[in-house]
Amino acid sequence: MATQIVENVLEEAKRNDAKKVAEVHLVIGKMTFLGVDQIRFSYNILVKDTIMKDSKLIIEEQEGVIECLRCGFKGPIPIDDDPAYHVPVPSLRCPKCGEAAKIVEGKECTIKSIRILKQQENKNDCQRCC
């Protein structure tokens, strides 16, 4: 996944004639299987010999949101904190009516924005004397 992120950023940077990539802003959903620390670790290795070297990686985490298939309730994913389970377990059960719900947010891994540096075109050249 980190490879795909870096490849896509490099492609976008190349398309815009970037000299350097200064900043990458990702949105990663909490309902994905992606670990923020692992992405950051791989990212730093992958960017080493590229124009993304020393770029700042900002990762924004998106909370999980579910929508009930029956009553239409939309809200944060319920966490079942039954002491019998030892651990809080996320659930797709609608907290309002108890029916099955589906995940509507929190499954994304999006490159939200990239900040690049590029050479300025010579806009000051005089058309008459230069």
Binding site: I5, E12, N16, A18, E108, I114, I116
Partner: peptide, 20 residues
């Protein structure tokens, strides 16, 4: 955004990698 002879450019690809 202008900054010396370098230009800073903010691009918003909004690309969802998992969507592919």
């Amino acid at each position: 955004v202008l900054k010396g002879d370098e230009v800073t450019l903010d691009i918003e690809p909004g690309m969802n990698i998992l969507e592919v």
